[in-house]
Design a protein around this nucleic acid. Structure first.
Length: 201
DNA sequence: CTACCGATATTCT
DNA sequence: GAATATCGGTAGA
């Protein structure tokens, strides 16, 4: 189809290079468009924080496939989160879409997240999926056809900030979270949940 | 704002 | 049995 963006140059290379390229890009699906303001890199076999670290499972199969697809997983028994699978091929690397700003279809997004402020509509990986109506149906979707990813011009390097990934106990030393400075839609940083003991009987 | 808690599929121990 | 790439509600400072 004419005008379809060419994703290959954007998604080739290690996830730590792909992630900052995705900042400012727009993901469109089901009547809503979100401009990405925060992402995280996951490097597959060498990365203890990655779902792919212990090898392929039914859940993670898409990450082991070709780049340019969406990896959607279901977690905590109720939420979906979306990643862009990137290259090089066979490495199971991906970039988690953590947050963004709704730039189109805001009324639809408000319907999908009724008690949310506009700022919070896509602030957090599961909220972003809800606003875009992304769920398990989109796992493995081609990003030039299903949910559509529209790359942005590279943002100024001094607008990109990095820090530790959110909610991970593993590999906290890798500052692989990337976000745009001074964006209100960037999600709040939360360290990994501490171990919680079962209450006494 | 921080802190806790419940919901509960998938995966691992 | 227990942890997890989370969120929304509630309670409190």
């Amino acid at each position: 189809m004419p005008g379809t963006p060419e994703l290959e140059p954007i998604l080739s290379g290690p996830p730590t290079e792909v992630a900052p390229r995705l900042l400012g890009a727009v993901l469109r699906h089901a009547g809503v468009a979100v401009r990405l303001t925060e992402v995280e890199a996951y490097a597959g076999a060498d990365d203890p924080g990655s779902h792919a670290y212990r090898g392929r499972t039914p859940r993670t199969a898409v990450m082991f496939g070709p780049p340019g697809r969406l990896y959607v997983y279901f977690t905590y028994g109720m939420h979906h989160c979306a990643n862009v699978v990137c290259g090089p091929d066979g490495t199971a690397s991906a970039v988690l879409l953590r947050a963004g700003e709704v730039v189109e279809g805001i009324d639809l997004a408000r319907e999908r997240r009724p008690r949310s402020s506009d700022r919070d509509l896509a602030r957090g990986p599961a909220r972003l999926c809800r606003a875009l109506a992304i769920d398990g149906e989109q796992d493995g979707a081609d990003l030039t056809a299903g949910p559509v990813l529209e790359p942005a011009a590279a943002v100024a390097p001094d607008r990109v900030r990095t820090g530790p990934r959110v909610g991970l106990r593993q590999a906290p030393d890798r500052p692989w979270r990337y976000w745009l400075d001074a964006e209100p839609t960037v999600s709040a940083y939360r360290p990994a949940a501490p171990l919680r003991r079962r209450p006494a009987p």
